[in-house]
Computed example of a mutant assay.
Amino acid sequence: MLSLAKSLAISSLVFAGAIFGFFYAWVCSTMWGLDTLDPRTAIAAMNAMNGSVRNAVFAPAFFGTPVVLAIAAIALKLANERGASIWFATAAAVSLLFGTLLTMAVNVPMNEALALVDIPDDRVAAQVIWEGYSPKWQFWNQARTVASGVALLLACIGLTKISKTA
């Protein structure tokens, strides 16, 4: 049972790392790049990216990370690795609450609202729209990025708490 639990723990690190990296890329490159563009182009590009992210490659990392972390926590508990289990359970909770649910409650509705906007021909009007969207979206993206990094860190600590035997 411990070998299975270790395998699940390692798999959950891959999931947690994937979603952390995804959010982090938006922080340190994507949004900064969009902010340098003509706001009409930035709005169109953001809408295109938001539409393209709904795919079978992204979904497992986004929806699956808290699940895989929780499954690892359960498997570790069943393998009598209570200390490690607590770290993975905490990582699962952080990932779910401040990664998945935060995204669904804040970033997704903002994205859906932006998608409904008719991109104005006037650059100044588009700038007003973009400036009303980008800073707030980036703030919440940074929050979910930090939370995803914390979840990854918690799982890494949990991995160090697993017994060496198996």
Rank of each mutant, 00 (worst) to 15 (best):
S29D: 06
L152A: 02
P39T: 03
S11A: 14
S85Y: 04
N107S: 11
E131T: 14
L2G: 13
P60V: 03
N47R: 09
I71R: 06
G83Q: 04
L4Q: 15
T65D: 06
L152T: 03
L97S: 14
I71M: 09
V53Y: 12
L116I: 05
L153A: 13
C156H: 02
R144N: 13
A89W: 07
Q127T: 13
V146Q: 00
A91M: 04
G64F: 00
W26E: 04
N55P: 06
S29K: 04
N80P: 13
L13S: 06
A125E: 15
A56W: 08
A143T: 10
T145H: 02
V53L: 04
L102A: 13
T30H: 13
C156W: 10
A126E: 02
N50S: 14
N47W: 05
A151R: 01
F58V: 14
I119Y: 08
N141D: 14
V67T: 10
Y24I: 05
A18L: 12
A72F: 03
V124G: 05
F15K: 00
D35E: 10
G64M: 04
I129N: 02
T145G: 08
V68A: 04
F98A: 09
A79I: 05
E112W: 08
I10D: 07
S11G: 15
L2D: 07
I71A: 15
T65P: 09
W87I: 01
S3W: 04
A59V: 02
R144E: 11
S134V: 12
R82F: 05
S7T: 08
M1T: 01
G83R: 02
L152F: 12
R82E: 10
A72Y: 01
G99D: 03
A113H: 07
F88Y: 14
P39F: 00
D38Y: 10
K6T: 14
I86Y: 10
V108G: 14
A44T: 15
P135D: 11
F20G: 06
G21F: 02
S163Y: 09
G51D: 09
V150E: 00
S11P: 04
Q138A: 07
R123W: 09
N141S: 12
L114F: 08
A125Q: 15
G158I: 12
M104A: 13
L114Q: 11
A18Q: 05
G51N: 10
A126D: 05
W140V: 07
A9M: 05
G99Q: 01
T36L: 12
N111L: 06
N80Y: 07
A61Y: 04
A73I: 12
A92S: 13
K161Q: 12
P39K: 00
N55Q: 07
Q127D: 15
L2P: 07
K6C: 05
T65M: 01
S7K: 02
P60A: 03
R54A: 09
S12I: 00
N50R: 11
M31T: 04
I119V: 15
V146P: 03
A75R: 03
E112T: 15
I74L: 13
S7E: 10
V124N: 14
A91Y: 01
R144G: 14
F62K: 09
T100V: 13
N55G: 11
M104T: 11
E81F: 04
A93W: 00
K136R: 08
P66F: 00
